[in-house]
């Protein structure tokens, strides 16, 4: 009985009372005035109308209006919360420098992982962010101390039975040994990432707090690398900015709205570029106007950024090829642009036409358009532009046109290569 309240059905609020029906006035009267307050009498608008009331009709109308009122409140709340979400999207910038000091030809950013500074190679062509981790079974020599999970209170192990571990398969293409655990689910999720140049990292998947510029994020999933080998120089690890669910971009979607940008600086003068997260238009204040091209969807290549290559020009001469209009990957970690053979042939032919009179040199590896430029101090190079869908142009930086195989300029090659066949 104590858990219930009794409603007298003959005494509910809808029962009209004679006193109200007979009321001649619905104006509120002042009920008195205190020193700091005034009291007004409150009456129900239906009950004081004085007219004969069809209660069934009134009830239906009241419920209808009530519903409209709730919908209105919901719309207002939705509008307010969506504004709040937009406001919570933040921006941050990190200096982006050459990795030459760390003996890598890649670009480096420094972030705080578990409160410790880590120098990471920036890579839009892979997904998992990882660092070399103690205790390490086989690590390359890095500058600075290895990340040590035992001294971090924010380090958390990712277990085999978690969805994060399953997502890793999609991102890396490697299942790790989790599949062979025969139901032993409380084991850590091991990962393996292999790169195109033969470099690799393997270790345990974990989560940790990370600070990107002035933005701190909790529980970032990363790889605690116990066995790492390859061309990473003295960097602490790698920042994966690909598109799968384990990439830094996907994990920070709510904070940065899936937007990041970079400006890669010249390596020679020690200049610093920026890696920026979030859609802060002030980042582009020193840029020319931004031209956009759609990211092409390919369900089989979800990790990659694919653009539609629609044209190219050498020294202002537009090239013709039936192979234009196809997807091309864009990657911050690849230096030599690979083109379908027919497009490469057109590039090579036009470049040689405009860059004539310089002594040629034998090819090197995949590069077959090479020169000996030892007897020249300054050379004039035709401008190369790559054009993407929507007429977005990327003008190749002058230092990216050639690959200096030999530093004395006796072997300098055009930094473009041909794929083996058109649809490779």
């Amino acid at each position: 009985v104590d858990q219930k309240k009794i409603l007298s059905v003959h005494n509910n609020i809808w029962s009209p009372k004679k006193s109200y029906e007979a009321s001649s006035s619905c104006f509120s009267r002042s009920l008195g005035k205190g020193r700091d307050s005034t009291a007004l009498e409150m009456k129900h608008r239906e009950l004081c109308s004085g007219k004969t009331i069809d209660w069934g009709k009134k009830m239906r109308r009241a419920l209808l209006l009530d519903n409209i009122r709730v919908q209105s409140l919901q719309l207002r709340i939705k509008a307010m919360t969506s504004r709040t979400t937009e406001q919570s999207v933040s921006e941050t910038q990190i200096p982006l420098t050459s990795g030459i000091k760390l003996e890598t030809l890649n670009y480096i950013v420094t972030v705080e992982l578990g409160g410790k500074n880590m120098s990471l190679i920036v890579d839009t062509g892979s997904d998992l962010t990882w660092v070399q981790c103690q205790p390490c079974r086989s690590c390359y020599n890095q500058q600075g101390p290895l990340y040590d999970p035992s001294v971090s209170s924010s380090y958390k192990t990712v277990f085999c039975n978690s969805s994060t571990c399953q997502d890793l398969v999609a991102a890396t293409g490697n299942s790790g040994p989790c599949g062979g655990n025969n139901g032993v689910v409380k084991t850590s999720c091991e990962y393996v990432v292999s790169y195109g140049d033969g470099s690799y990292t393997r270790g345990d998947l974990a989560s940790e707090s990370i600070k990107l510029g002035d933005t701190k994020l909790e529980n970032l999933v990363f790889g605690c690398g116990r066995n790492n080998k390859g061309l990473f120089g003295g960097a602490s690890g790698l920042m994966g900015l690909g598109r799968s669910s384990v990439s830094l971009v996907s994990q920070t979607l709510k904070t940065f709205n899936g937007v990041f940008s970079y400006c890669l600086p010249s390596l020679e003068d020690g200049a610093s570029g920026t890696l920026s997260f979030g859609n802060d238009s002030s980042v582009y204040k020193n840029s020319t106007s931004v031209s956009y091209t759609p990211l092409v969807q390919n369900p089989q290549l979800r990790s990659f950024y694919i653009l539609n290559l629609t044209g190219a020009s050498i020294g202002g001469v537009e090239l013709k090829s039936s192979s234009f209009g196809r997807g091309i990957l864009i990657d911050s970690g690849t230096v030599i642009t690979r083109l379908p053979p027919s497009i490469y042939k057109a590039v090579k032919t036009e470049f040689l036409k405009q860059f004539s009179g310089f002594p040629s040199a034998p090819g090197y590896s995949i590069l077959d358009t090479c020169f000996n430029l030892t007897s020249y101090e300054d050379i004039s190079i035709p401008t190369i532009k790559i054009i993407f869908e929507g007429n977005a142009e990327l003008e190749i930086d002058v230092t990216g046109v050639f690959y200096f195989v030999k530093p004395d300029a006796s072997l300098v090659c055009l930094a473009f290569a041909s794929l083996s066949y058109e649809n490779e």
């Binding site: 900015l241 709205n257 020319t288 956009y292 950024y305 970690g333 590896s365 930094a415």
Partner: peptide, 30 residues
């Protein structure tokens, strides 16, 4: 040739917008 930074994209602001499924390019002296 290992994992080397892409010199060809130097001094460009390259904007990856995964929400709007687009990539922006602008010249910028870094």
């Amino acid at each position: 040739v290992g994992i080397i930074g892409n010199y060809q994209q130097k001094n460009q602001r390259v904007i990856y917008d995964t929400t709007q499924e687009r990539l922006g390019i602008a010249g910028e002296n870094c």
